[in-house]
């Protein structure tokens, strides 16, 4: 294997390692504010239930 081929292989391997964190980025679930509290989640679920099953 020529030195240039070894260099190219090393460069490719290094590039993969370097850019890996960008592709393993987890989507930000709580973008735009803090995580909702338990009470807020329960209130939201109640509102959705109410909307789906309107009182007669």
């Amino acid at each position: 294997m020529t030195p240039l081929a070894i260099g190219a292989l090393l460069a490719a391997a290094a590039m993969v390692w370097v850019i890996a964190p960008i592709f393993t980025e987890m989507p930000d679930e709580h973008a735009g504010g803090p995580a909702p509290s338990q009470a807020a989640e329960e209130a939201a679920e109640a509102a959705i239930r109410e909307w789906r099953e309107p009182k007669e």
Partner: peptide, 21 residues
């Protein structure tokens, strides 16, 4: 965005390896 910073830091570590080479 931390992932961008992590990638940048890895670039610096890789630059160290290649400068040593």
């Amino acid at each position: 965005r931390d992932p961008l910073t992590s990638s940048g830091a890895r670039g610096l570590f890789a630059a160290l390896g290649f400068t040593a080479l």
